[in-house]
Amino acid sequence: MTSILTNARALTALRTLGAAGDGLDTANRRVSTGARIGSAADGAAYWAIATSLRGDNGSLAALTDAIGLDQTAVDTAALGLTRTVEQLKVVSRTLVAAQSEQADRGKLQLDIGIALGAIRSIAESSAVGGSNWLSVKSDAPGFSANQQLVMAFSRRDGSANLTRSTLDASQFILFDAKARDASPDWVESSSVAPAGTLAAITQGIATRASPTGAPYTVSAVVSAGHTHTNGLLDTGYLLNPTVAGFGFSINTLDITQPNTSRALIETYLRVVDATLQQVLDGAALLGSTSALLTAQRDFARQMTAINGAAIGTLTDADIEVESTRLKALQAQQMLGLRSLSIANSAPGTVLALFN
């Protein structure tokens, strides 16, 4: 049947051509962008999951940077403690040499002073971004002996969670520049409480430096409103029995003072050795923390790669398939145009009747 009002064949051909054109647009977009799911309209569920994973990857990238910054601070402090250990060994060897009756204590004191000056310089230089864990001022606003290190990022029950680990930096503070009393004495006493666990640590050093039968016992003064505990090297120690003028800190060691006996130098040596062991413990703690941060950073990078693969599975187009489909749709479009041309020629036969 041929009608001059409705050309059914042409309408069918037009619909087929339109469908081929829509498919061709989709295939062209997928081939050009490489994405099968580019918006919510292409697949709401897959698009939402992929978008969430992309957000997680952004957070993981920021986490990697934050861990890197924290690790820099940890490694800097660890390096400072390692160098401090070397200088404390120099002080220890010098004190051993000073036990000899023939030793020139004046020259040995020069070696001690140089080593202690080097430690002070190392501590002051162990700073990253204005943060220094070895030389502090514990009464400064915002000071905390505990350092919060970023460890991990996760998403649970739709909420983002950031995991931190607390590092007790008071275990290896070398110097504390907190306010001292108006009338300084040999240990520069302070009314500011010791930072973190330093009070217990210095008491432990004093105990280890006071073995049974030793001629002198050592103690660190820590009491309400009055303390000699500062950093590991500027904490003041008292001797029992009391020796006039011989309260001391490692930072103020002086073997040239009058009445400095071999027993007193041996006491200095024990305090230096006990402090050296504490510094070694601090360096070991920082080394373990650095290894943990490295593992966490590597894990974050691996999670980023896994999320990227998941995003690709959900949204990436198969270029080989899409290219094949593109060729087929181009052929369909050409056939549709030919069919439409044939269908549109049918009314011409009606016109021929009037010739």
Rank of each mutant, 00 (worst) to 15 (best):
E266D: 13
F248R: 03
L238T: 06
T267I: 00
V221I: 11
Y268V: 03
A244F: 14
H226I: 06
T256Y: 09
G236W: 02
T242W: 09
P215H: 04
T217H: 14
G236C: 04
P215Y: 05
S249T: 01
S249A: 12
L238F: 10
T267K: 09
G225M: 07
R262M: 09
V243F: 00
T217P: 10
Q277S: 13
T256W: 10
G245W: 12
Q277D: 12
T267H: 03
D254L: 08
N240R: 05
T252P: 00
Y237N: 08
F246N: 02
T229L: 14
Q277M: 11
A274S: 10
G225F: 11
L238Q: 12
Q257T: 12
T260E: 11
G236Y: 07
Y237L: 04
V221E: 11
D273C: 12
D234T: 13
G247Y: 05
T242P: 13
R262N: 10
T242L: 09
R262H: 14
S249I: 03
V271G: 03
G236A: 07
T235Q: 06
V218Y: 01
S261E: 01
R270I: 10
Q277E: 12
N230L: 15
L239Q: 06
L239G: 06
V279T: 02
A214R: 01
N259K: 03
S249D: 00
I255R: 00
N251R: 14
G247N: 10
T217E: 01
Y216P: 02
L232F: 05
V222E: 13
T252I: 04
P241K: 05
A214K: 05
I255C: 14
R270N: 05
L232E: 05
Q278I: 02
T267P: 07
R262S: 14
T260D: 04
H226G: 13
L253I: 14
R262F: 08
Q277F: 06
G231K: 01
Y237E: 04
I250A: 10
N259D: 01
D254I: 01
Q278L: 02
L276Q: 12
P258M: 03
G231A: 02
F248N: 00
Y237G: 03
S249L: 10
L276E: 14
D234K: 06
G245T: 09
P258A: 13
T229H: 13
G213C: 03
H226Y: 13
T267M: 11
H228S: 11
Y237D: 07
Y216T: 08
I250W: 05
G213A: 07
